[in-house]
Design a protein around this nucleic acid. Structure first.
Lengths: 189, 189
DNA sequence: CAAAAAGATTGACAATAGTCAATAAATCAT
DNA sequence: ATGATTTATTGACTATTGTCAATCTTTTTG
């Protein structure tokens, strides 16, 4: 099994050699180029992605070409265009890798296989889901209670890597503000 | 078991008579008055609430007394101050019942009991969690991509009960806007 | 390495939304 | 029911943020 995935699982789940092999067989390695599109909006997101290296960006585009970043996934984390993946409906979001990336890809069917076959896998998955849900609740909180400056400061505190690694444009649309506003926040503060 | 809870579970989980009794014993009925506070911010949310009648409001207050509604839970749905409940940390949010309500209350320990004892319970719980997570992702989307008018229109389409049943003030802070702005949106539109 | 492309900054202006205050309407509790 | 309290609406003004455009900087790629 890929060491990064092994580390991700850590002591949350003890796998027998057979089960470890099963997990290993379900996750397929994929390498992407900078800005490569993995899921096009309108198509169904059929995979979960574990990021070994690089990052993924789940983003929305409107008719005028404006983009908004719904979600960012860095090294050691899993994600996808979740509503599409779960509901098996065409995704309103696209997924791209802003950096050249190394991914481990898990299909929906293989996720179900692991959930059903490996005792404890569903509990681990569920606990991860709870944490992701909490993160999204906290993002909602920041959006409904704070102005753009406060949101930027929080992001700086909690996920400075986003600000360091990604272009201003993406940071801005992750925060739900224009890139000009972000630029002004950075100079003023 | 309470018929509303039975309906909530529906065909998602077939319970043996013993397990049905176990579920029934874990959920305690609680009646609340209008605007009663169930969880005070700063305390730990130790329960999950199933709303039989009425509704619950999970909300934030700042130092100036401004309120923001993080989450609303209507009949037939479950919820709590989720980050506090899961992380067992003091809640930044409070919970109140804006209407007199009938609730079924499940403690953290009893939730774990059901998760561990009843085969299939965790799967049902996990599927519910996935849907709640999806709803929160969609709320983030509306907050980062739409202006207040568009958000109001979406809310009208997707959850008109919120607008019909709850005071303007709560609708406004659920949308992340001031109540004056909401009032103007309604008259203009 | 150089040309081209993409991203970042800044200014001027417009639009959206917030605040404060006064009044009107609706709702609650006795 | 009615007085009291809360909630909703409206106006005037302010503050924040967005848009468009120009310029400057950085990054990419042939």
């Amino acid at each position: 099994m890929h060491p990064a995935l092994k580390q991700h699982i850590g002591d949350k789940l003890i796998l027998s050699p057979e089960h470890e092999l099963l997990v290993d067989n379900c996750f397929k390695t994929r390498l992407t180029k900078r800005n490569e599109i993995l899921v096009e909006k309108g198509s169904i997101a059929r995979h979960l992605y574990f990021v070994v290296k690089g990052c993924l960006r789940v983003f929305l585009t409107d008719d005028d070409g404006n983009e908004s970043t719904r979600f960012l996934i860095f090294e050691g984390r899993m994600g996808t265009a979740f509503p599409s993946f779960i509901l098996k409906e065409p995704s309103v979001a696209s997924i791209q890798s802003p950096e050249p990336s190394e991914l481990l890809v898990l299909s929906y069917a293989d996720r179900d296989l692991l959930l059903n076959e490996i005792p404890g896998f569903e509990t681990m998955y569920r606990l991860g889901l709870e944490l992701d849900y909490i993160a999204s609740i906290q993002r909602i909180e920041s959006l409904i209670t704070m102005d753009s400056k406060a949101r930027y400061n929080i992001l700086m505190q909690t996920q400075p890597e986003i600000i360091k690694r990604l272009p201003n444009k993406i940071v801005a649309d992750y925060l739900g503000i224009s890139q000009e506003t972000l630029s002004r926040l950075k100079s003023k503060k």
